[in-house]
Amino acid sequence: MESKVKEINIVGFLCNWCSYAGADMTGLGRNIYPSNIKVIRIPCTGRMDPMMIIEAFHNGADGVLVSGCHPGDCHYTEGNFYWRRRYPHLKSLLEHFGVDRRRFHASWVSASEGKKFAEVVKKVYAEVKDWKDNG
């Protein structure tokens, strides 16, 4: 009765205007990607409160992916520029507290890049799996 395989949980925070639509496009295009990602829609990566990411890890997420519009394409003009500054600092801080590098990722996916979204999720899944298997 080994049916309870330790499943990998990845929380995906996707921006409403690009990446969320991009994730839709992935489905429409019948691209296959790991279903371990649980998507949470956010208005903009600029709204991405680092607290929510820390909370996600605290509550048992194995990985977190934050995805937004490409720089310059932000619906609110500059939200993702702020995110781009928060990301490296948060990654570094989380690492200092012992959250592995492989667990936290960010990406740019536009509404038309369904294929890219599938690739990104596959990549994140591989990294998180690597962490979980090899420590």
């Binding site: 720089p71 500059e78 520029f81 500054r85 990301y87 490296p88 960010a106 990406s107 740019w108 990104v120």
Partner: peptide
């Protein structure tokens, strides 16, 4: 302060 501002030329080496 660094998080109160941004620069269009900021690095994004680690972003997928």
């Amino acid at each position: 302060p660094p998080l109160s501002t941004y620069n269009e030329a900021d690095s994004e080496s680690d972003i997928l």
